[in-house]
Amino acid sequence: MNTTHRFAIAGGVAVLAALMSYLFGPSLPEHLVTHWDAAGEPSGSMPKGQALWLFPGLMALLIGLFAVLPRIDPLGENIAAFRRYYDWFVVIFTTFLFFVHAGILAFNLGYEFPFTHVLLAGLALLLYYTGIVLTKAKRNWFVGIRTPWTLSSDEVWDQVHKLGGRMFKLTAALALVGLLFGDLAIYFLLVPLLLTAVVTIAYSYYLYKNLEQDADTKLT
């Protein structure tokens, strides 16, 4: 299976989402619930026309964007080194959006379920695969933990992404554990994500400065 086949899978998922909107649209109310609070209670809605086509349109846009990025990246050859993982991320991300879309349609058709918990479970799986991609990613301008210091050094990039991949996988596991804690579940996702961002940014700066010091020491 090559890149064309994998993107065709993602495209098929987007088409299926559009087909669902077309088939179920007549049975849905004029305004669809599209937002829920941390307790899983509906907290916002959207006109049917917008809600039906928001996710299919977003999926198509993102697939197109992900197809173009490796072509315009000055380090596109590095993306080629982990292209299989990149492509499967597109498929998994598109599938995640599909299930969010399907969940919104199902909820508004009268099926009752804890939408927030379903969303968090899906996000956990997406984050876990993101962790896998990070451990495989090579330095580029669009995919990964991009700080001034990771983009300036292959060594810093590799070390930070090794740590970041582990932290994303841990965040995914904590998000699943959080499902056992009701209204607090969202914090089992948000707090580790924030911590991951802070730690990886700080770690990239620390590593880069250490490399600079080592280089200066060798010169002297």
Score class of each variant (00 low, 15 high):
residue 61 L to W: 14
residue 54 L to P: 07
residue 170 L to G: 02
residue 121 A to H: 07
residue 123 L to P: 13
residue 129 Y to K: 02
residue 122 G to W: 03
residue 31 H to Q: 14
residue 141 W to P: 09
residue 101 H to N: 04
residue 108 N to F: 07
residue 106 A to D: 05
residue 73 D to A: 10
residue 85 Y to I: 15
residue 32 L to C: 00
residue 92 I to T: 09
residue 117 H to L: 15
residue 161 H to E: 12
residue 155 E to D: 15
residue 100 V to Q: 02
residue 57 G to N: 04
residue 49 G to M: 12
residue 110 G to V: 11
residue 93 F to Q: 04
residue 151 L to Q: 01
residue 5 H to Q: 14
residue 102 A to D: 05
residue 201 I to H: 10
residue 192 P to H: 02
residue 42 P to S: 02
residue 27 S to G: 09
residue 68 V to I: 10
residue 99 F to H: 00
residue 97 L to D: 04
residue 75 L to D: 07
residue 65 L to F: 15
residue 119 L to D: 10
residue 213 Q to Y: 00
residue 160 V to M: 08
residue 167 M to L: 14
residue 50 Q to D: 13
residue 103 G to V: 04
residue 58 L to G: 05
residue 154 D to Y: 13
residue 138 K to R: 10
residue 23 L to H: 13
residue 88 W to C: 08
residue 176 L to I: 09
residue 10 A to R: 05
residue 102 A to R: 04
residue 219 L to I: 12
residue 80 A to N: 02
residue 170 L to A: 09
residue 158 D to N: 11
residue 168 F to S: 09
residue 202 A to M: 03
residue 128 Y to A: 12
residue 180 L to I: 13
residue 56 P to A: 03
residue 55 F to L: 15
residue 159 Q to R: 14
residue 56 P to R: 01
residue 5 H to D: 15
residue 56 P to Y: 01
residue 10 A to N: 10
residue 183 D to F: 14
residue 118 V to T: 09
residue 207 L to V: 12
residue 217 T to R: 01
residue 148 P to C: 07
residue 99 F to S: 00
residue 11 G to H: 06
residue 165 G to V: 13
residue 29 P to C: 02
residue 2 N to I: 14
residue 56 P to D: 01
residue 44 G to H: 05
residue 86 Y to Q: 01
residue 125 L to S: 04
residue 90 V to C: 02
residue 164 G to Y: 08
residue 112 E to N: 12
residue 198 V to C: 09
residue 108 N to H: 03
residue 60 A to L: 15
residue 192 P to A: 01
residue 40 G to W: 07
residue 202 A to I: 01
residue 97 L to F: 06
residue 167 M to H: 00
residue 212 E to H: 00
residue 148 P to M: 06
residue 164 G to A: 09
residue 74 P to H: 03
residue 173 A to R: 00
residue 23 L to K: 14
residue 16 L to K: 08
residue 80 A to R: 02
residue 112 E to D: 15
residue 16 L to F: 15
residue 104 I to L: 11
residue 162 K to A: 13
residue 188 F to L: 10
residue 9 I to D: 04
residue 106 A to P: 07
residue 54 L to D: 00
residue 96 F to P: 06
residue 115 F to D: 10
residue 145 I to A: 05
residue 47 P to K: 00
residue 47 P to W: 04
residue 217 T to H: 01
residue 190 L to Y: 11
residue 207 L to K: 02
residue 211 L to F: 07
residue 119 L to A: 12
residue 3 T to G: 11
residue 42 P to R: 01
residue 142 F to G: 05
residue 86 Y to H: 03
residue 188 F to M: 08
residue 127 L to R: 05
residue 28 L to Y: 04
